[in-house]
Design a protein around this nucleic acid. Structure first.
Length: 804
RNA sequence: GCCGGAGUGGCGGAAUUGGCAGACGCGUUGGACUCAAAAUCCAAUGGUAGCAAUACCGUGUGGGUUCGAGACCCACCUUCGGUACCA
């Protein structure tokens, strides 16, 4: 008689053994082939671990365990992305130092993660807020500075007019301050920028060489938004002034009937005395400054704008005069901040032209421009366009481009939606930017031997009421000497964004205790690139793109061996609350994984989260589903009673076993954990139809289930004395010839509807099958008095008879 | 708005990628065990009609391609992620 299944004692027992035996520590000196598996490290919030964290961690833990059984030297590390706004706000609210808050949260997270039995290599744990870590974040930032990729620029921040502090986008709700409801305006500040745009082309082109989820690559490409077009110089009438626009459609130049410039365009200031309605324009500009780019470019909202009274533009193609408007749907941050409007072939221009009663000219045939903009012009032919008439759009593009370039009126230009990265934050809880501003030398980097620049102690973590970081108030920290000339200098008081530490953390895992370098070149050569990186879709265009950018830059400096950090990127779906709603504190439906571990066990939590649904899609939590997973493990536990000695397959199970090994091996490598667990359940159901199970089959079963439920399988392995430890075992192999039955049930269709199923040899030919099918009453019934027009026979799949 | 996903029984989901829709699990119903309950075990379970064999309907909506569509094409609806200072 076996004892009762008691997950609590089993799980604690094995977690202790794994830790004592250092089972999951990866070696930097191994003859084995390496495999580097990375999961996004969590932000350790005060709320603690979420069941949503456990899903991807369990999934990649399964992959890691399987890879180890297959003989790889696996690196599967974990750490903490701990700088950031929520911790700072928590600290302010509860009057606790953010460092202490972080320490507590990390402690809690770590305990929670460890109780679920992940095979992380804890000896390589990193923390972005640890000075020993951010010393290297600062060092790497200085490389950007040295190479001219970090520069200062006037950029707007959200400014609450009543709290008098800068706000994150998240803290602005419908244009008002989240805390006090006060009005939020854009305030310009001189900030550090990183020139990610310099890598735009490579960030797109190199996607072809790596195995990213299709939707991820597409989204990165669209985010970078490369478009090939032209910069074209329009002129302003009676002024010696060019007004440069960017267009992807120089072929439609003859259809341009007016111009639109962004409210921030410098031409307004320059010619303010010529502009008769300057007051009206200033007022419009004021209104526009309150809106986000998002609001400004919405297609549904009604277009607004003001005509500039006093300035006329001239179309370089035909010297025609046209009016200039100011409108907020043109952004200063994209292109040149000015456009030529072609209302016949652009939706927004059409809408604007209709509203302001401007002429609309058709220049590509195929639509009806009196009714709507004709934009699908791929196959169209040019009209009303002088020397372009009769050409197709592509030819017209080239001809116009050549013509403009010849006359020096414009040049071919590639434009990107991607903007440079604003790298300054006016916050306390981030890495100090390691630069000082010297009275005589200007910006000077803090020398390497003085890194890290640590955060000073402050009383108050709130940003100051003049928009500066709280660090600006700490005068004895701010005032320093210039490392270059020894004169007076002041420290930069802005800190780095949260994205800084997470842009390179996977490099530090490789050599986490190195005091000389961020990681040794030898270790980087061995481990990089990451073989498999899994994370959330929500990180596609920020974190994932930022870390690719940093890595490419380091590659150019020969700091890392590969141009891409991640070979493969997959993404998991979110876990929602019961009834498919988001888990949130306000709804009170947040599930704490520890409650599940305590009540049902870690193996149950793991099994349930893998079985909950397609790993890549979101799935709703269900307490009954958890119970189902526990029931499954209880049945596995009970299976011990039926095991008998034997090195043969149990009666009639040869094919089932081979089939299941094949399916699970495939499923675990392809994120199909839900069907993998289902296959284990099916095999268990087959086992339970037998009186006895051979030790050999039980051994196979435990190996297959082990990556999902490592504790219970290790315990049963030990109970049945199957030899040594399961964690030292090898992944089971299968015999391909034993994965299929010799006879199959073939569906027989009449006109595409299944009318019968016949059992027949797998390799039977059409005639054999037809003869057998016609014996079926339900087949002959439908053929009676009809004529066979066609027969479709797909061996092993279907037989369809078409009758008339 | 723009970019990228998703929509299948009462519920979570499966479907070898164009070939028997609903695997597996949950729930429900009936039965066994029990003084009783829980747990466990057995059976049934998309809808309609039928004693049954079986027939018809059925994968968000409307069209289309095909011998055959959950899967492909066109148009739409709903919903989720991102939208650059949440991480």
């Amino acid at each position: 008689m076996i004892r009762e299944y008691n997950p609590k004692s089993i799980e604690e027992k094995w977690q202790k053994i794994w830790a004592e035996d250092s089972v999951y520590e990866a070696s930097n000196n191994s003859d084995k082939e390496k495999y580097y598996i990375l999961v996004e490290f969590p932000y350790p919030s005060a709320d603690g671990l979420h069941v949503g964290h456990a899903r991807p961690y369990t999934a990649l833990d399964i992959v890691a365990r399987k890879k180890r059984y297959e003989g790889y030297n696996v690196l599967f590390p974990m750490g903490w992305d701990a700088f950031g706004l929520p911790t700072e706000n928590f600290a302010i609210k509860n009057k606790i130092h953010p460092k202490i808050v972080t320490e507590n949260n990390v402690k809690n997270f770590k305990k929670q993660l460890q109780s679920i039995g992940f095979s992380f290599d804890w000896s390589r744990e990193v923390n972005t807020t640890d000075p020993e870590y951010f010393k290297w974040t600062q060092w790497l930032f200085l490389k950007f500075y040295e190479k001219g990729l970090a520069y200062k620029k006037e950029m707007p921040i959200n400014w609450c007019t009543s709290c008098k502090i800068g706000l994150a986008n998240e803290e602005v709700v419908n244009g008002a301050c989240e805390r006090c409801g006060g009005e939020v305006v854009q305030k310009v500040k001189n900030q550090w920028m990183l020139k990610i745009t310099e890598y735009a082309d490579r960030l797109i082109d190199d996607l072809d060489d790596i195995d990213f989820l299709n939707s991820v690559s597409t989204q990165q490409k669209n985010w970078i938004g490369r478009s090939f077009g032209m910069n074209v110089n329009f002129t302003i009438k009676d002024k010696d002034e060019k007004l440069e626009i960017f267009t992807t459609r120089p072929d439609t130049l003859f259809g341009s009937t007016y111009m639109v410039i962004s409210p921030e365009h410098p031409i307004i200031e320059k010619y303010r005395t010529d502009i008769k309605n300057i007051e009206e324009i200033e007022k419009y500009r004021q209104e526009a400054s309150k809106k986000s780019d998002f609001e400004r470019t919405e297609l549904v909202k009604e277009k607004t704008g003001v005509k500039i009274d006093g300035l006329q533009a001239i179309n370089p193609a035909n010297a025609k005069e046209m009016p200039i408007f100011v409108s907020d749907y043109v952004l200063m941050t994209y292109g040149t901040g000015a456009i030529m409007a072609v209302p016949g072939h652009d939706e927004r221009d059409f809408e604007f032209a209709t509203k302001f009663d401007l002429p609309i000219i058709e220049v590509v045939e195929g639509g009806d421009v009196t009714k709507e903009a004709f934009t699908n012009t791929e196959d169209g032919i040019l009209v009303n366009s002088e020397f372009l008439n009769g050409l197709n759009v592509k030819e017209a593009f080239d001809k116009m481009a050549d013509w403009l370039e010849e006359k020096a009126l414009g040049e071919r230009k590639t434009n990107y939606k991607l903007r440079d990265w604003v790298f300054s934050r006016q916050r306390y809880w981030g890495e100090p930017i390691p630069l000082v501003n010297c009275d005589t030398c200007g910006w000077v980097p803090v020398p390497e031997d003085q890194l890290p620049v640590e955060l000073p102690e402050v009383e108050n973590y709130q940003p100051t009421d003049n928009g500066e970081s709280p660090l600006a108030e700490i005068h004895d920290w701010v005032n320093t000497t210039c490392p270059k000339c020894g004169g007076h200098a002041v420290r930069e008081t802005d800190t780095m964004p949260n994205w800084a530490g997470s842009s390179w953390y996977f490099l530090r895992y490789i050599d986490p205790k190195n005091n000389e370098e961020f990681a040794s070149r030898e270790a980087l050569d061995y481990w990089m690139p990451v073989d498999w990186y899994n994370g959330g879709m929500e990180h596609t265009t920020l974190h994932l793109l930022y870390s690719r950018f940093w890595h490419k830059f380091f590659y150019d400096l020969d700091l890392v061996p590969n141009p891409e950090p991640f070979n493969k990127r997959t993404a998991h779906g979110m876990i929602l609350g019961e009834g498919n709603v988001k888990m949130s504190k306000s709804l009170g439906n947040v599930i704490n994984p520890n409650v599940i571990v305590d009540e049902y066990g870690a193996d149950t939590l793991r099994t349930y989260e893998m079985f909950i649904g397609d790993f890549e899609k979101s799935a709703a939590w269900s307490e009954n589903g958890v119970k189902g997973a526990r029931r499954f493990l209880e049945r596995v536990w009970k299976l011990q009673e039926n095991v008998v000695d034997g090195n043969e397959y149990s009666k009639g199970l040869e094919i089932s076993i081979n089939k299941t090994i094949k399916k699970i091996s495939h499923d675990f490598d392809n994120l199909k954990f839900n069907t993998g667990v289902a296959a284990l359940m099916e095999l268990l159901n087959e086992f339970n139809k037998q009186d006895k199970i051979s030790k050999k089959d039980m051994e196979t079963y435990l190996q297959l289930l082990n990556p999902v439920a490592p504790h219970i399988t290790e315990e049963i392995w030990d109970n049945l004395e199957l030899g040594g430890r399961l964690y030292n075992a090898q992944w089971p192999s299968y015999d391909e010839s034993k994965t299929v039955e010799n006879t199959i049930d073939m569906p027989v269709q009449i006109n595409g509807k299944v009318r019968a199923t016949v059992t027949i040899a797998r390799d039977a030919d059409k005639e054999e099958l037809k003869a057998k099918a016609l014996e079926e009453e339900n087949v002959s019934k439908f053929l009676d008095g009809k004529q066979i027009v066609k027969e479709i026979f797909v061996p092993g799949k279907i037989y369809n008879i078409v009758v008339k």
